[in-house]
Design a binder for these strands. Structure first.
Lengths: 258, 258
DNA sequence: CTTGACCCTCACGTTACGTCATGGTCTACC
DNA sequence: GGTAGACCATGACGTAACGTGAGGGTCAAG
């Protein structure tokens, strides 16, 4: 092949190296995102090492979900700094890893809910606060979740609770939710210490009123707030986006205590 | 709204709960992936809790990259077991997390390559084995990478190497690569102990011949084999898929020694 | 020279929605 | 009861990022 040098690659070689298709490379050439440095006399695309470095960066941006047009614009910026971009990409990928971890936690929570129903016990506990009736609580919940550790510990602690205790618990819960709502309404970042303080108050209430609840466990509960539609409905009914807000605040709190 | 019950949700509510669009829900209804349990008298879609559970699972499958048609087929299977599916999804998500971790490692490796060039030193060291000339090695590599720790340690060790030493090193490298190729050709799983043993031999060669190389460091090098096109080219030139194979074997070795 | 792998351009098709148009429904408030 | 704004319905064209295939040229080993 005329013009083919030792350090140039044809489209098929690049595709194999990078794990993408020839069609993708054609497409990228076509839209001006990544074209070959040269063409052979017969019209073959010839990519060199610099092209490959650029391709790697394109693929990372793609991994981050950027539209190809946006990738081209970003890399076409005269002030584009490759290392700075790589650093930023790394940060964004780490964010993605954290999100994926949360998806995993949500699936795990769903599995536990199916197997033990422990989370639903808590959900139902909070839900019954709307029109609280201790006798209804004992009957229905024990019937469904009588075997779980959390239930037994809660039952042990709450056995001696009076009506006044329950009203206090309800008031505590409402106060915590109001704090969350106020924080949301006033634009407080859910990853701030302020929001995390509210989450810590929520965790302590569970820990002190019902059963041992570590920050990690609380974080799992937080995942359930967004993953389980019934939890989500409780919070979304108070304000759109609240479930996500509370979950993030809880995760922030768990992270700062670890 | 006629027929609307307390535990049913309209399309907008579901969209907000799940963080997706109304259009997506319309689309899913349209293609038979997820339709509402009921319709109001005026034709509004009404989703119930079971619908929401199904939606969650659809979204997880989507997160895993399955085509919607395939998701519908999987969940439409008469033997579909929700908990078993959740378990499998969790495993697959964990696999995705590991892949993402590798992408991150590749970006980090690219950053280091830009900053220190240390990896390219190793790459060029291996590359020159094809047509090895010690004098060329000293000149070019020192000129480019003379400041890195790895280079200095290598230089310190190799200063007294004879031509016979170098030929031995080259033979060792070729033998290791041949072992990798044989393992690949005979279908040995790159995550097996056998493949990891070969990787360990490779690590030891670097450790003993050039510079201290821990399993973790070796794993980083392995990431470079697939992330850096020049490394990849070396291995892909021997056999398609070899870079990936070697990288996986190295990672397996690193994992079993940690 | 032949053959098979690989290259080119062209162009229609697919997937998963995004966007908008038009018109009906619901609910709080006056 | 009427109004207004939010939300619902269906229909339909458009988009992004390739996938797939057609028809024909190029390369290199045998």
């Amino acid at each position: 092949m005329a013009n083919r040098t030792l350090d140039s690659y044809t489209v098929g070689e690049v595709a194999r190296l990078a794990g993408i298709t020839v069609r993708t490379l054609h497409h990228y050439d076509e839209i001006g995102l990544l074209g070959p440095s040269a063409r052979s006399d017969s019209g073959y695309r010839l990519y060199d090492d610099t092209d490959l470095e650029r391709l790697q960066q394109v693929l990372v941006y793609r991994e981050l979900g950027l539209a190809l047009d946006d990738i081209r614009a970003a890399m076409g910026d005269p002030g584009f700094d490759r290392v700075a971009a790589l650093r930023k990409q790394r940060t964004q990928l780490a964010g993605q890893a954290r999100r994926l971890k949360r998806v995993i936690a949500a699936v795990e929570a769903a599995i536990r809910a199916e197997e033990t129903g422990m989370r639903l016990t808590k959900e139902e506990m909070f839900e019954v606060f709307g029109d609280f009736d201790p006798t209804q609580f004992d009957g229905e919940v024990k019937e469904r979740w009588g075997d779980s550790d959390g239930y037994r510990e809660s039952a042990r602690r709450t056995a001696a609770y009076t009506q006044e205790d329950w009203m206090a618990i309800k008031a505590e819960g409402e106060a915590i939710n109001r704090r969350f709502l106020d924080a949301m309404a006033s634009g407080v970042d859910p990853t701030s210490d302020q929001a995390a303080d509210i989450a810590e108050a929520a965790r302590l209430q569970i820990d002190q009123r019902f059963y041992p609840c570590s920050p990690e466990m609380h974080a799992n509960l937080g995942e359930m707030y967004v993953a389980d539609p019934r939890f989500a409905k409780t919070y979304e009914g108070m304000a759109p986006g609240m479930a996500e807000y509370v979950r993030t605040a809880i995760a922030t709190n768990a992270a700062r205590t670890s």
